[in-house]
Structure formats: structure tokens, C-alpha cells
Amino acid sequence: MRTSFGFNEKLIFHNNRGQSLEISVTSPFFLQSADGIDSLENEFYNVKNYNEDGTNIKGSSVRERNIVVGGQLRRQDKDINRQKLIRFFNPKHRFTLEYTNGDITRFIDCRVEKSPVVSKHIWPEFMISFLCPNPWWYKEEQKYEIAMWVAAFEFELEIDDGGDGIEMGYREPNNVVNVFNDSDTASPLRIQFKAIGSVVNPYIKVVDTGRIVKIDATLKGGDVVTVNTKRGDEYAILERNGTEINYFNYLSYDSDIQLSVDVGDNLIRYDAAEFVSNLEVSIYFTPQFVGV
């Protein structure tokens, strides 16, 4: 349990109604303790054989994270803030916890496990318990572009006497990008396929593993298909002429809807069955961390 906090450290809770509440040493909701923000708990799957000492570990997974925040209401407006605290942490709402400390910012999604218990002392103390189904802290998305056009038109302008015209831009010749994941675990992806003309069956593939996400369809110019592989929020959506269409059924049978990038280097290639020159691809991933 952490019981000492600096002036730059803040726990800012955002709910799904667009409201926020800060708990820190400078807030009316004074931060005294936070349990569970630093460490993760591993769960082992063991097999014990007859007449064998100990057990054999066959696998493991990280358990959901429990965070318990304790604090104190300052005497000024304590009754108003008591009601504000209780109403804000409604168990029916969804929350994102934002941790900040100077230049470091991390997020984690959570739900209220036990709504605030607030004493009625002169300096009222409170305690709130949260459950984080995905136990990893994360930061803002990172973006990598594989297929794109590069601007080539600049001043001072020189026109070739040979009559070859003016090059306004050129297509990036490389169809492979190295997505470097500098976090603590494999991270899910958000993949965006953009068609600037007709494209047949566009896909991306992780070079080392062969894992793939492929659209079994022909995209028209202007179409954008976004595929999200975040656990619990998997989707494929087509944006066409300002309308969003569920495109999940157009993923190929061998697509990995939980495709992720491992820690370190990940070579990812894009291609299409036809008209690959009309395809632009952007890859987004969210780095994840053990603690803050």
C-alpha cells in the first residue's frame, strides 16, 4: 500500500457521463493511501503428480487488479463534498482512472466495487474500492503508418527542361513497418485500412508469426475500415459516405481478432489481392504497464 504522495501526484477519475473528480494531496479530497496501483498478482495453473514434491507450473495469467483508495475530506465544505463523493462514485457508472506525476500519465479502466464509505468525524475519512478487469495501466495510442503518400512539392520550385512534369508526391515504397512496443506486455491494435481507389481483400500480417487481419471484400475509393483487437471491445467498422457499417462478418476466417504486438520489435507487412497501390494503412497500439 502506498501511503506517501508528492504534490505532483494526482488520481483523477473520469466517468462515462463526462464528469471528473481529483483525489490528491492538494485536492479537497485529500489522498492518504492507494493500494494496488503499483503491483500485479500472478495466478498459476499447477499440476501435482502422485508422490511428487511440489507442483509443476503449466501456465499463469495476471489477475484482475483491485485498487483501494483512502483519503480524508478537508473541513471546509465537508458536508457538500461528502455528498459529491458518494454521488460521483455511483456503482452503475464506468470509470477511467488517470494517474499523473509530472510528465508521466497513465490510465486504467475500472468499476466501483464498493462505493465510498465516509465517516462523520471532524475530518471525515473515506475509502473506495475498485475492480479493474484489465489489470494493465496504459498510455496514449502510438501511431505507425505503413502505406502512405509522401509530399514532394516544395519551394524553391524547379521545373525540368526535359518536360517530365512536376512531381507533387510519391508513394512510400516500403510495405513493411517495425512497430516497436516499449511497454511491459503485448498490446492490442487498432488497424485502419483506407482506400483511395478500389482495393480487393486488403490485409496486414505479422512477418514473424504469420498472424493476419484481412478484409474479405472490395473497398471503394473513400472507404475506411477500422479493426480493433482490444479484448472486450473487438470490432470491424466500415465508414462509407458518412455512414458506419458493422463489417465484422467481412473479416476472413483466418483473421486474428485479438492480434497484438509483442514487447520489442514487430515487423508488420500490408498487402492486397488486387490494387494494393490504392491502399493506405495506419496501425495504432496502446502501450501497457505493470504499475505507476
Score class of each variant (00 low, 15 high):
247 Y>M: 05
92 K>F: 05
150 V>H: 07
269 R>C: 09
129 S>F: 06
272 A>Q: 09
197 G>Q: 05
45 Y>C: 00
158 E>F: 12
261 V>G: 01
265 D>N: 13
244 E>Q: 06
198 S>C: 03
49 N>E: 04
139 K>H: 02
67 I>D: 11
47 V>G: 01
74 R>E: 14
19 Q>I: 05
240 R>W: 04
240 R>Q: 05
29 F>T: 03
20 S>P: 00
117 V>L: 10
146 I>F: 07
21 L>S: 12
170 Y>Q: 11
232 G>E: 04
165 G>K: 03
145 E>R: 15
113 E>A: 10
281 V>H: 08
182 D>I: 13
273 A>H: 06
165 G>F: 04
95 F>Q: 04
218 T>L: 07
216 D>T: 08
231 R>W: 02
206 V>A: 14
203 Y>V: 02
61 S>H: 02
284 Y>L: 14
227 V>W: 03
239 E>G: 02
126 F>V: 04
79 D>A: 09
10 K>R: 13
128 I>Q: 01
291 G>P: 13
59 G>P: 15
240 R>K: 03
58 K>G: 10
80 I>H: 00
189 L>P: 08
180 F>E: 04
260 S>M: 11
50 Y>S: 02
30 F>H: 10
98 E>D: 01
253 Y>N: 05
251 L>E: 06
234 E>L: 14
116 P>N: 01
76 Q>E: 11
127 M>A: 11
56 N>D: 07
128 I>M: 01
29 F>D: 08
40 L>Q: 05
106 R>H: 09
244 E>F: 03
53 D>P: 07
221 G>T: 00
118 V>N: 09
138 Y>D: 07
81 N>P: 15
157 L>T: 04
31 L>V: 09
19 Q>G: 03
50 Y>M: 06
238 L>A: 09
81 N>D: 13
210 G>I: 14
178 N>R: 12
7 F>N: 12
97 L>R: 02
213 V>D: 11
292 V>R: 08
46 N>D: 13
116 P>M: 02
13 F>R: 09
64 E>G: 12
199 V>P: 12
51 N>P: 00
261 V>L: 05
109 D>N: 15
165 G>D: 02
219 L>S: 01
47 V>M: 01
159 I>K: 03
210 G>E: 12
